[in-house]
């Protein structure tokens, strides 16, 4: 049952990405290109998502368990540290180069085109590089 609801959440997320146009790098870059002809759409995607998400997180704050009885796991780390800052900046640079972030990259991979495969393999390598660095740093 929980696997089915996880799959369902993924599908709803994917449909949202398709409908909002966020699977298209050109649309994402249209938002990031403040100096050119600006497409504010991505901002409204965030507004819609955060509006719906806020309700859910307000409900989650009052209950320790999910509808299927799982512990609701909220991140405990409160530290604004160098890792958070450096990581977010690196991600933003990569995002600005191709207009792809992990969610849309997965949906694009599902279209069966070749370029998303190239991006996705590089993304996995980048994540692997983090695991390697993380072990070296002993964290």
């Amino acid at each position: 049952m929980s696997l089915f609801t996880a799959l369902l959440a993924g599908v709803i997320f994917g449909i949202g990405l398709v409908i909002s146009g966020m699977i298209f790098p050109a649309k994402v870059l249209g938002f990031l290109d403040l100096a050119g002809r600006w497409d504010p759409s991505l901002g409204l995607v965030m507004v819609g998502a955060i509006a719906a998400g806020s309700v859910a997180f307000a409900i989650a704050r009052k209950r320790p368990r999910s509808a299927l009885g799982f512990e609701i796991k909220l991140p405990a780390n409160r530290q604004i540290d160098r890792r958070l800052i450096a990581g977010s900046l690196l991600f933003g640079v990569g995002w600005g180069i191709a207009g792809l972030c992990p969610g849309p990259a997965l949906v694009d991979l599902g279209t069966g085109q070749f370029k998303p495969v190239v991006f996705f393999v590089a993304l996995l390598l980048g994540m692997g590089l983090f695991e390697w660095l993380n072990r070296r740093w002993g964290g």
């Binding site: 949202g16 989650a60 609701i72």
Partner: peptide, 26 residues
């Protein structure tokens, strides 16, 4: 290029997906 309604609607679906994942799967 600006698509306000599909952006808002798609965004709400993304938030809904996050809500399902949080409140059902935790």
């Amino acid at each position: 290029a600006f698509t306000p309604w599909s952006a808002l609607g798609g965004g709400v679906l993304i938030g809904l997906a996050a809500a399902v994942f949080l409140l059902v799967n935790g």
